[in-house]
């Protein structure tokens, strides 16, 4: 049975301004879906790679150097708009806040569609059918329309961990292993 947990909410007017800017650029380039998806994945990648996040937020490194790292990493893997937006955020010295800015941008985009952002951690990629059924199941249980964003995280081992705002529904094998370990001790 999945369990629910509260996570601290990130709310900052400055982050909201950056998030709105990202969404506005993506909309202006008519690449909102792609850019939002790429930004989300980049944000998750930075959240799981502390060294990379520290390098992008290191004020001792020249901005050009940090922006060069972004372009080297994303040049062939993301759209030019996404790369430019990430480079812009790093260039303003907000590289360390990039995961939070991206989360805010994706959440605001979903809110614009009258939906809440549901971050789903899974060991495997979900099919569209699974995403649809999961969204429907979440609506049934919480009464909230959600937009599914899947994060591939092998540490969950199996099953899913869904985060909707501050609510966490943990149905992962990792949690069951933790419970098993607790029962042993």
């Amino acid at each position: 049975m999945p369990t629910s947990t509260k996570w601290p909410a990130v709310a900052d007017d400055r982050l909201g301004g950056y998030a709105d800017a990202l969404l506005a650029v993506a909309a202006a380039e008519d690449a909102s879906v792609v850019v939002e998806d790429e930004l989300f994945r980049i944000g998750e990648a930075l959240r799981s790679n502390e060294q990379l996040l520290a390098a992008l937020s290191d004020r001792h490194l020249p901005i050009e150097r940090r922006q060069g790292v972004v372009e080297d990493l994303l040049g062939s893997k993301a759209s030019s708009t996404t790369t430019a937006l990430v480079s812009m955020v790093v260039g303003t010295g907000r590289g360390g806040d990039l995961p939070a800015i991206v989360d805010e941008a994706v959440a605001r985009s979903a809110a614009g569609r009258q939906k809440a952002l549901a971050r789903v951690r899974s060991a495997i990629e979900l099919t569209d059918d699974q995403k649809s059924r999961l969204a429907q199941a979440i609506k049934q249980s919480t009464g909230t329309d959600v937009e599914i964003r899947v994060v591939i995280d092998e540490s969950v081992l199996g099953g899913l961990v869904t985060e909707i705002g501050d609510d966490v529904i943990d149905g992962s094998v990792r949690r069951r292993m933790s419970q098993l370990r607790e029962n042993f001790t």
Binding site: P2, S122, Q130, G158, L160
Partner: peptide, 11 residues
């Protein structure tokens, strides 16, 4: 496991 999770959340 994912399908089971979805069913549990729906339940």
């Amino acid at each position: 496991l994912v399908n089971a999770y979805i069913d549990e959340v729906a339940g």
